[in-house]
Design a protein around this nucleic acid. Structure first.
Length: 214
DNA sequence: ATCCTGAGGC
DNA sequence: GCCTCGGGAT
């Protein structure tokens, strides 16, 4: 069977079992960008507290965060963990956004996808997963997000080698699926939820919607 | 005690 | 390739 067909079957099975995921859980593109950095190796419930702090103090705008110093910002995002590094990463991103795009997200996302992706990866603190999350969920651009769950689910099922790189896994999806923003959005969200509930470090294959693909 | 929608530095 | 960053939930 073709890779394209298997990928769509896996998608369909997860969707039928788990339903639409309504991602990203953020109200604005800017909130999604901040969330993408805050959630690095961190559970979303803790990110929500940090975002709540920013909202409550009126700091969840490009201008407001640009004016905060790193120490003030780190205290607001404290509940998300790694708050010192993340405060620096957010500030570095904001400095870059203002010097290259005048602080405008619409100008940012008007940029060509591949150009913008390599620009984002050059910003210190923005790695491949964060870059792709920003592009897909804040920018509505057709790039596939790969994460720990994607790797774990597909390597456990023997669909990809253990030593697969981020870009190799990303290519598997992008070369075998239509470049559809809505599909990429839902597919990654479903993989995350499947990973959280079933494909954990400790396996729960019996209840997993993808057990028939083992 | 383990894990959480990673990335940079060495 | 290994270490660090880290509070919060379970």
């Amino acid at each position: 069977m073709s890779k394209a067909k298997v990928l769509l079957q896996i998608y369909q099975k997860m969707f039928d079992t788990l339903g639409p995921q309504y991602w990203w859980p953020g109200e604005t593109p800017f909130e999604i960008i901040i969330g993408a950095i805050l959630t690095q190796n961190t559970s979303w419930s803790n990110v929500e507290k940090a975002i709540r702090n920013l909202k409550n103090t009126g700091k969840l705008t490009p201008e407001a965060i640009h004016e905060l110093n790193v120490t003030e910002l780190s205290q607001l995002i404290r509940p998300s963990g790694f708050f010192n590094v993340k405060a620096r990463r957010i500030k570095t991103f904001m400095d870059w956004l203002f010097s290259n795009y005048g602080g405008s997200l619409s100008r940012l996302f008007a940029q060509d996808l591949q150009t913008l992706r390599s620009e984002l990866l050059a910003v210190k603190g923005i790695g491949p997963e964060t870059a792709d999350s920003i592009l897909l969920y804040a920018g509505n651009l057709p790039t596939f997000v790969v994460d720990t769950y994607t790797y774990r689910i597909f390597s456990r099922h023997g669909f990809i080698p253990e030593e697969s790189s981020y870009d190799e896994i990303k290519s598997l999806f992008e070369e075998n699926l239509p470049k559809d923003v809505k599909l990429f959005n839902e597919y990654h969200a479903l993989l995350v939820n499947t990973g959280k509930m079933f494909c954990k470090p400790k396996k729960f294959c019996e209840q997993c919607p993808l057990k028939e693909f083992l």
